[in-house]
Design a protein around this nucleic acid. Structure first.
Lengths: 205, 205
DNA sequence: AACTGAAGCGGACTGTACCCCGCTTCTCAA
DNA sequence: TTGAGAAGCGGGGTACAGTCCGCTTCAGTT
């Protein structure tokens, strides 16, 4: 009888895992040293002492590398959300948590802008099942159980949060653009108003 | 006395303008025929009977081509905003216009997704002075003169509108993802609540 | 320990975005 | 009409992302 595949994913082989870890480490060095845009696949492979094929096998695409790097940072952030102290973590009322989330997320993204942007891959868009999305959706549902059924609202709030930094705003140098505090304040305004109890029944039409 | 440069931009030379127009035309054909991702600079140059250098001189970058194509569509859209019939154009109360804008913009982006995405260029982000941003900012200021001072709110609402389509959503094929109607409905909810008269004075803190 | 199929590896190869620079064409003023 | 300088043009050159496939290494099995 042939072995039944219980998990969809066979474990990564030991040497492969070793190489992945090493590549991530070297990549981080190179990003720190040269900036993300000067990191090339060939350069990374060479400096890591591995073949180019290996790099691509591990990360699939150039932005895959930055995605991997960024993901490590994300994990720290997510840990705050699920087991950190309130109001960011559990234990505060949903709206409070939403507001805290907004500030924390914006500050996080601002301090990781280059990586976050380098990790973006147009054509293969951000996975629909992102933890950020889920988090906002849950909080939203707690705060206003009536709406938010489709998840579109959560998606849009996340986009309102991340879009300006990922997509629209000149990251650094030259003119000021927007201040972080403005973004935080106005997202919090948005979140508060969306979750505020509706005074009158929703307008006809 | 040497001539003073009154405008920052000397007019484009006649042959150059001719070439640009021709390139745009050929590019549009090729996009329709092959899909945006199979349009190459060399291919475009060859099919247009021009040198590769010329293509780059005119559009600067690959996504520049799609940007040019997309801009033409945008112009039609913007015309609706500034001189079309209400509620999209002028003549309706601001909140009505905002709601109409949301629907129109989402439908517009959905029907031009591939071009819009191809026009995206990470690294050189969307110009801060976009007409969309301005439009939303004005309507917002009319509806709620008290807040929206920094413009961040308008930016975030635009991001909420465009982000899901440009960045987060799998554009076509496979599973449903989100329905356009969900996006429209929930953005309108967002817009309505943000502009709704606040019941109580803004919460302390 | 030896075997074996799967997983991983390397690096030559390909396609393409973007640069460069000598040559051509335009524009405008005299 | 012509001369001069600027703007535009072409296409070969470069660098890099991503593919391919024959060889090597691993990890269970006997």
């Amino acid at each position: 009888m042939e072995p039944v595949a219980l998990s969809w994913h066979r474990e990564e082989r030991a040497d492969a895992a070793r190489n992945r870890a090493h590549l991530v480490e070297v990549a981080r060095e190179m990003v720190a040293e040269l900036g993300a845009d000067r990191v090339t696949m060939d350069g990374l492979a060479e400096r890591a002492g591995l073949g180019k094929g290996t790099v691509f096998r591990r990360f699939g695409t150039r932005s895959g590398i930055f995605h991997a790097l960024f993901d490590e940072e994300e994990k720290h952030f997510q840990r705050q959300l699920i087991s950190g102290p309130p109001p960011l973590g559990p234990g505060a009322p949903p709206v409070e948590r939403l507001l805290a989330f907004g500030r924390a997320r914006i500050e996080f993204l601002v301090s990781h802008t280059t990586l976050a942007r380098a990790a973006l891959d147009i054509g293969r868009p951000v996975p629909g099942r992102s933890p950020m999305l889920f988090h906002v959706q849950v909080l939203l549902a707690e705060a206003r159980p009536d709406d938010a059924k489709s998840g579109a609202l959560a998606l849009q709030l996340v986009a309102a949060l991340e879009g300006p930094i990922l997509l629209y705003l000149q990251s650094e140098d030259d003119e000021p653009g927007f201040e972080v505090d403005d973004l935080v304040a106005s997202w919090q305004l948005l979140a508060r108003r969306v979750t505020a109890p509706t005074a009158a029944p929703p307008a006809r039409r």
